[in-house]
Simulated scan of single mutants.
Amino acid sequence: MSLAVEIPDPPELGAQNPAEYDDVDGVGVADYRREELEAFLEDGAWADAFEEWAAHTDLTEEEYAIAADLDLLGEFDFFWDDFADRVGYHAPGLPEDWRERDIHPELDSWSIVSSINASLTELGQIVSDVLKAEYVDWEAEYEAPDDLPDF
């Protein structure tokens, strides 16, 4: 299945400590390199990943419209996890008490909520993979000085 929608703007990355997210395990150092990752997202990583995700997602246009109306796509967070040598992510989702909160008039079943949450998690993983495979090269930033002694 394919989702034919306009690519939204990339998310602005937060300042929250990733260890505080319920869905993120074991994050290393506190330098999450969000500025660099946000620049990569703006330079094409978000669009590349979104297109890949949209080509294969099971999310319907109606379900996507709900996620867009609630600005869930803007709530993604991506961060560098130096300990695991990966781009970590926090995918937004609808809360378990969505019925009590009356979040959106089109939300009327657990299957829609589940589909949205699962699809957003898939998008987060694809963005993370694209960033790591095609954009992140922290070692290329380091240039050894010319005047290092020979050992």
Rank of each mutant, 00 (worst) to 15 (best):
N17F: 00
S109E: 07
E12D: 08
D77T: 01
P149T: 02
Q125E: 14
L131S: 05
L3T: 05
Y89R: 05
E12C: 00
A49T: 03
Y21L: 07
A19M: 08
L107T: 09
R86W: 03
F50H: 06
L94V: 07
D102R: 11
T121G: 14
D9H: 07
D137S: 12
I116W: 02
F83L: 13
E141R: 13
E35K: 10
F79R: 03
P10S: 11
N117Q: 06
A118Q: 13
Y21F: 15
A19Y: 01
S128K: 00
D85S: 14
G88C: 05
D82L: 10
I116Q: 11
E36D: 13
W46N: 03
A68G: 00
E61P: 04
A91T: 06
F83D: 15
H104G: 10
V87D: 02
L120I: 03
V29E: 15
W80G: 06
Y21G: 06
D147R: 00
F78D: 09
A49V: 00
Q125Y: 10
G93D: 07
P10L: 06
P92C: 05
V130D: 02
W110G: 15
G93E: 05
I66V: 15
D137P: 05
Q16M: 11
Y21Q: 04
R33H: 13
S2G: 12
D69W: 07
E75W: 01
A39K: 13
D43L: 01
G26W: 01
D82K: 11
N117A: 07
P8A: 06
